[in-house]
Nucleic acid binder design. Sequence first.
RNA 1: GCCGUUGUAGCUCAGUGGUAGAGCACUUCCUUGGUAAGGAAGAGGUCGAGAGUCCGAUUCUCUUCAACGGCUCCA
Length: 646
Amino acid sequence: MIKITLPDGSIREYPVGTTALNIALSISEGLARNVLAAKVNNEVWDAQRPISNDSTLQLLTWNDTEGKATYWHSSAHLMAEALESIYPGIKFGIGPALENGFYYDVDLGERTISTEDFKQVEDKILELAKKKSQYIRKEVSKQEAIKYFTDKKDEYKLELIEGLEDGKITFYTQGDFIDLCKGPHLPDTNNIKAVKLLNIAGAYWRGDEKNKQLTRIYAITFPKQKDLTDYLTLLEEAKKRDHRKLGKELELFMFSEMVGGGLPLWLPKGNILRERLIAFMKKLLVENEYQLVTSPHIGNSILYKTSGHYEKYGKDSFQPIHTPNEAEEFLLKPMNCPHHIEIYKFKPHSYKELPIRYAEFGTVYRYEQSGELHGLTRVRGFTQDDAHIFCTQEQVTEEFMKLIDLVLKVFKALGFNDYTAQISLRDPNNKTKYIGSDEGWNKAEKAIIDAAAAKGLKTVTELGEAAFYGPKLDFMVKDALGRKWQLGTIQVDYVLPENFSLEYIGADNQKHRPVMIHRAPFGSLERFIAVLIEHCAGEFPLWLSPEQVAVLPISEKYHTYAEQVFKKLQSVNIIGNLDDRDEKIGRKIRDAEVKKIPFMIIVGEKEQEENTISLRRHGKGDIGSMSITQFITLVETEIKSELEKK
RNA sequence: GCCGUUGUAGCUCAGUGGUAGAGCACUUCCUUGGUAAGGAAGAGGUCGAGAGUCCGAUUCUCUUCAACGGCUCCA
């Protein structure tokens, strides 16, 4: 007998060679039906794999990330089986699970697959799933593995096998399909009840453009038909919220071929969003003892050669600008930091002045590859809510804690309540990618970890994700649809102060090197607004709304009164429009609703006589009548509560 | 940058080897209407750009640009 420790700490005894599935069955039949895989001694295993030693065991179901991953990975195998039966001789690359669904890279040879073929593949997958084929794990020698795939003429799998250690190679078989795979897999295919092929895309074998391009087929499966329907509804909803679509519909921003791809033009309404976000941030900056500075859009290349960016990114940037006579070289500003460094160097600094915090809404330009441009989230010119903090080593952790507070305050005011922080550290196996001393890096990494811990942040740590000049703390928010976005960032930098020989005079009357912190709570205004649009589906918080109110006169007779109301609102900075078109009220209301204007004020005979307004709320309908003053108070109260959310 | 798809009116889209159509928006007129589309008429397009095939190209071919879906990249 062996001892199995369950997550609740209880220990049960089972015969040697029992499986997670059997153990689940011993607890309850329902549980056994839902088991997709199991964590045995913290390693994800097949639920049907024999356990021969004392172990800890956690059963994994659809509610566990690893359970889902196993489910989708097994689904990828099933899709491969379906594809192989439809397209005999097809070759397979890799077929991993994703956060939502899975894909398989295939080499179809001369054939092609298109969305019209999806139905056939989906039907085949369901047909195979119904056979309830078991996923059978088999350990094979490297020689056997090579022989199998040589016979099958699958050079991709052979290449994968080459990189594997003999004795650690396993095959999984379900139905007629055998795949090289380390697993784990579902007990059988019967769990896969609903499938949808999502799209096809080209993908280079092993992500290298020198290699052959394979066809990547994305799909998703579910244990219940309803889950699939829900997922497809979610995709629809995401489409409706797409900031590119809403940006056009709500007249927030545009792109022009004449101006160039990735260079957004802000329309008047979108610009109000920008201005309000900037005003909001400036207020926070003043409260947090930042000083605003301004730097030009181009800088001498010496600046970026000194910073190290030129060497690292110069060849991928926009081409330098050359002067006609003096043979000088300028770069479009790709970041603000070197400029702020020069501002720091304007005069010597005492330790008593530190930390010095220079902030700027600086527009920077980066050459993004044409295929990478995407709405406002990936552009070639964007405005950072940038600041650089110059402080002593001792001040780093405290500054970091203040910055975490600042970022969180911003998130709360904008309704991003679900966030995590990612600590990005060096890849310990590839230190050459980074510049700066080991000592500096170690200190910086520790400062971030300490500050995040002191603030009780929910964090994940990623090795190898640091910037080349220093580690960073990035904030990921989850939007209303549960999608993750990276927004704010805080980065420590020991390299630039070194490259620019920054100094301050310490209490000991000696020169010391300050530490620099880069930070941007929004990240970039463009990206932030894109995420915000999708998060709130274009229904902005009242304080940000570019059109807070629409004043709708019932007919021409009440235009004068409507105008009085409108002017009164304008005088207290409540913005919007006066709809004096020759249309019926129903039409005016509809148009205001479609534009997602938070408040509609309807004025006619009754209102004019009583000197009141009739109020309607977007999405909610008629609220009733009140005085203008009451309405103004209502708006001001709501804005105040939005901005002061804790 | 690479692969694939797409490009027709301001927007959303239909359509064709014989120089184009709908709905909405727009303009004018009628209507002065009380909580999600009142009615009529009108105007609007080198069919993304360039080249080729053809008697003739928006339609077929090539090139190019842009957008979209991916890949690679991201200070």
